[in-house]
C-alpha cells in the first residue's frame, strides 16, 4: 500500500515536498512518521521528543483534514491516503 507524505518548511528543505512510502501492514499516521523518519535522522529529531512521542506542536492531516491527537495512533491509513505534517505555522 502506498501512502504519500506531504512536507513543508524545514522538512521540505531536507526531504522534498513529497515522500512516498510503501507499507504492508495496517499503519497509523504516527507509524508512517516513524517509518519515514527512523532514529538518527534529522526528521526524527525534528518530529519526536526524547520519549519517542510526536512533538506536541506538530499537526497532522489526512487528505487535508486536521486530525485530533487521539487519531494519530488510532486511525488506520488506506491506499492512496495523503498524510501531511505541518510544523508550527508562521503566517501573517
Amino acid at each position: 500500500m502506498k501512502i504519500r507524505l506531504r512536507l513543508f518548511a524545514r522538512y521540505r528543505d531536507i526531504y522534498g515536498d513529497m515522500k512516498e512510502l510503501e507499507v504492508t501492514d495496517p499503519c497509523s499516521p504516527l507509524g508512517i512518521l516513524r517509518l519515514a523518519f527512523p532514529r538518527g535522522t534529522e526528521g526524527h529529531t525534528l518530529s519526536f521528543d526524547e520519549t519517542g512521542g510526536l512533538k506536541r506542536h506538530l499537526i497532522l492531516l489526512i487528505n487535508q483534514r486536521r486530525l485530533t491527537g487521539a487519531e494519530y495512533e488510532t486511525l488506520i491509513l488506506s491506499e492512496g491516503d495523503e498524510l501531511a505534517l505541518l510544523p508550527p505555522v508562521a503566517g501573517g
Binding site: H57, I59, R66, G69
Partner: peptide, 18 residues
Amino acid sequence: RWIKGNLAHEQQATREEV
C-alpha cells in the same frame, strides 16, 4: 532560515477547534 512558528498550537488545541 525558517521563521519560528506558533508553538502554542498543540494537538489539544487542534482537537478543541475541530
